[in-house]
Write a protein that binds this DNA or RNA. Structure first.
Lengths: 226, 226
DNA sequence: GAGTTCGGTGAACAACTGTTCACGAGGATA
DNA sequence: TATCCTCGTGAACAGTTGTTCACCGAACTC
């Protein structure tokens, strides 16, 4: 399982605080860590984290049970890593997408497109997040809630730059952001469902999502802030 | 565990297709069945159905493991019963509440009040539903989805009688109903969280829910149906 | 009152679980 | 070169699991 080759260790002069080149050991360790994460992710397709066995995970990763403890203390920690993986890249993508536009309409289409692509590229992660949003594993549940809050906060900040709502008090902005995020979460769940149950109906779901977002946007024109 | 008394069996003349008086056996059976359901519900407070053991349930119910199979074939069936218990009473309550009012504003306050009370009275059920909405146990996941759809359909039918939207095409009505139901589901989840984490903040959550519903209602005035 | 059905029991089964431990191959370090 | 440290191994532990079975008393039927 190891010893493919051994390139002469990076014996360069270690000067200037630059990042040290990753040692062979570290890269190997990273490999089995990934194997554990991927194995878990595969199992979580139809299991809940609550019910995920350490032995199962190591088996799926092709590794001895004891090896698990070299990387995580308990199964919860592995779950937290998965939460992080799913959200940090998504948040970045969304921020970028919103930076590119000014009109609300473009913003909607852009955001939905980004979401759809990201869900498609990371189905296993999203299935996991959907299932564990109200997880029995407390730390994971809290982590997901926290990430979604962050998401809403960032969205509220960006919304504040739009013409229609830029004079709203914060409370109302937050409410709108909450509504939008709730809708996107819901849509993400519908997306993973439709992607594996009836992929041909995916465009319908996408169109529905855009329409409902547009409804929320229209609401802003009629709403009189508190 | 049995034989408290034995009232002379209801030896009345069995005529006219009236419901037969429940036999002692049946009522006893019902008792342990309830004990199993309640035991499960208690355990599900911090477990997922996926991870609920038959032995655990029988232990919590104060009953031998084998007794479980006299009532359910597998743990999924028990879950389905819980889903049914939670939704049928709620749907009835909501329909009644909406029948009492005509103005949209009353309707919002009424509905939220009913929801809050029902959630408070059935916290365990709601926690279970929230957690299992994307359950790893397929039949349960499907059952919950189905119940929520029913909910939305009934709401759409009632919405059609309101002045602002009564000329909308069905598709738009369904969309609005979906939005509202999604919001209520989300709110129910926030409610159970806040009820056990910070009960004093409950009024805030209630007010927030009403405000967000009102936002959706305002949206209807600005929306131009497809 | 005799016979049947039903719902609960406790024992038994193999299978699997999380966690610990001493061990060793081999990268890292000097 | 010799030493240390890291990460994976396989064996072992006691504990729990789902499910089946023969059994039995009490409720029911006639």
């Amino acid at each position: 399982m190891t010893s493919t080759r051994r390139p002469t260790p990076p014996r360069a002069g270690r000067r200037d605080g630059a990042a040290r080149p990753p040692s062979v050991r570290a890269v190997d360790k990273g490999r089995t860590r990934r194997a554990l994460l991927d194995g878990a992710l595969a199992l979580l397709e139809d299991r809940s984290l609550d019910n995920l066995g350490i032995r199962e995970v190591t088996r799926a990763a092709g590794v001895a049970p004891a090896a698990f403890y070299r990387h995580f203390d308990r199964i919860d920690d592995l779950g937290l890593v998965l939460v992080d993986e799913a959200f940090t890249t998504l948040r970045q993508l969304m921020r970028d997408a919103r930076d590119d536009v000014t009109a609300a309409d473009d913003m909607i289409e852009q955001s939905v497109a980004v979401l759809v692509r990201h869900v498609r590229d990371n189905q296993a992660h999203y299935r996991f997040i959907a299932r564990e949003q109200y997880s029995a594993v407390v730390p994971v549940r809290l982590a997901i809630r926290h990430e979604i809050r962050l998401f809403a906060t960032e969205l509220a900040a960006d919304l504040a730059r739009l013409p229609v709502v830029d004079r709203w008090p914060t409370a109302d902005l937050v409410m709108l952001a909450d509504l939008i995020v709730g809708l996107m979460v819901d849509s993400a769940k519908r997306l993973i469902d439709v992607m594996e149950e009836a992929p041909d109906r995916e465009p319908t779901v996408v169109a529905d999502t855009e329409r409902r977002l547009r409804y929320l946007a229209f609401g802003a024109t009629a709403w009189r802030p508190s």
